[in-house]
Amino acid sequence: MSKRNLFRTGRGVVAVAASMAAGCAVKPEKAPGPPVARAPASVQCQAARAGDEAIGNWYGTRSQRGVAGTLHVLIHLRADGTMSYDEQLKRGKKPGQALGETGCWHRDQQGLVLQTVKSNGEPVELSDPIYKNRYTVRFQPPQTMVFDGRDGRLKARRMPENYRLPF
């Protein structure tokens, strides 16, 4: 091979190597990622009627078909229309599992409606029906309320304002 052909071949190799390096330096287009979660629509809680007998802390236990253990439930209904719903599953000596929801509550013709806005601190999809719970309620004086809902019946008793579920 002559020096001239070797020089041309060498320049060709350098040109190909340079174009490959330039191709690697180009930023690839970003692949579309998962949709960005939008903040839930703003929910304004409506204050409860003055003196509503549902206002307060309500604690009860229940069993649910298909769930091993006892569910301990604390529902805190506040006068400003906000609520918190805490549930613990206790199964003997196994560690308990907990759920904590916050949101709004109001009365309707059938009873009580709890609308979850956050579940375990995370915003929820408000249009998902799992986050709107309707209960038919009955009061049994002096300090008991019975909640009948899609998950069954919860007989709850009024607890002091500062009561929390034990962990």
Rank of each mutant, 00 (worst) to 15 (best):
Thr61Arg: 09
Leu77His: 04
Ser84Lys: 09
Gln88Phe: 10
Asn120Ser: 14
Val36Phe: 10
Arg8Tyr: 04
Ala47Arg: 04
Thr102Phe: 08
Val36Glu: 12
Ser84Trp: 04
Asp52His: 05
Arg62Lys: 12
Arg164Ala: 10
Gly96Cys: 06
His106Met: 02
Asn120Val: 04
Ser42Phe: 08
Arg49Gly: 04
Phe147Asn: 02
Asp148Thr: 15
Asn57Asp: 03
Ala50Phe: 07
Asn57Gly: 03
Leu74Val: 05
Asn5Phe: 08
Leu114Trp: 03
Pro40Arg: 06
Val14Ile: 09
Tyr135Gln: 06
Arg134Phe: 06
Gln140His: 12
Val26Pro: 00
Gln97Ile: 14
Ala39Gly: 13
Leu71Thr: 01
Glu53His: 14
Lys3Ala: 09
His106Thr: 04
Ala41Gln: 15
Glu122Ala: 15
Pro123Phe: 03
Asn5Asp: 11
Pro166Trp: 08
Val117Thr: 15
Arg134His: 03
Lys3Val: 02
Leu126Gln: 01
Gly56Asn: 09
Gly23His: 03
Arg107Val: 10
Val13Met: 08
Asp86Gly: 08
Cys45His: 08
Tyr135Met: 06
Pro123Trp: 02
Gln97Phe: 01
Gly111Val: 05
Pro95Cys: 11
Gly69Glu: 06
Asp108Ala: 11
Gln97Gly: 09
Lys30Gly: 15
Arg138Ser: 09
Pro35His: 09
Asp151Thr: 10
Gly12Thr: 00
Asn162Glu: 12
Arg49Lys: 14
Thr102Arg: 13
Ile75Ala: 12
Thr70Arg: 10
Gly66Trp: 06
Ala22Gly: 12
Arg11Thr: 00
Met83His: 02
Met83Lys: 07
Leu89Asp: 01
Leu99Trp: 04
Cys45Glu: 00
Arg65Lys: 15
Gly51Ile: 13
Leu6Met: 11
Tyr131Arg: 05
Glu101Val: 00
Ala31Gln: 15
Arg157Asn: 12
Ala156Phe: 08
Ile55Arg: 12
Leu114Arg: 07
Arg65Asn: 10
Thr144His: 04
Leu165Trp: 04
Thr61Leu: 00
Leu74Phe: 01
Met145Trp: 00
Pro35Thr: 11
Lys90Arg: 14
Ala98Glu: 08
Ala50Leu: 10
Phe139Pro: 07
Val13Glu: 05
Ser119Met: 13
Glu101Met: 13
Thr144Asp: 05
Gln64Asn: 02
Glu29Met: 14
Ala15Leu: 10
Ala156Tyr: 06
His106Leu: 05
Glu53Gly: 14
Arg62Gly: 05
Phe147Gly: 05
Lys30His: 15
Tyr131Ser: 03
Arg153Lys: 13
Gln115Cys: 01
Arg107Ala: 10
Ala31Asn: 12
Trp58Leu: 04
Arg62Cys: 09
Thr144Phe: 07
Ser119Tyr: 07
Ala25Asp: 11
Phe7His: 01
Leu89Ile: 11
Ala21Arg: 08
Glu161Arg: 14
Val43Tyr: 01
Phe147Arg: 02
Gly12Ser: 02
Val146Arg: 04
Pro95Phe: 09
Gln110Asn: 15
Ala68Arg: 14
Ala18His: 00
Ala25Ile: 08
Thr61Ile: 06
Arg153Cys: 00
Lys132Asp: 01
Met20Gly: 09
Leu154Ala: 05
Ala22Asn: 05
Ala22Glu: 03
Ala39Met: 15
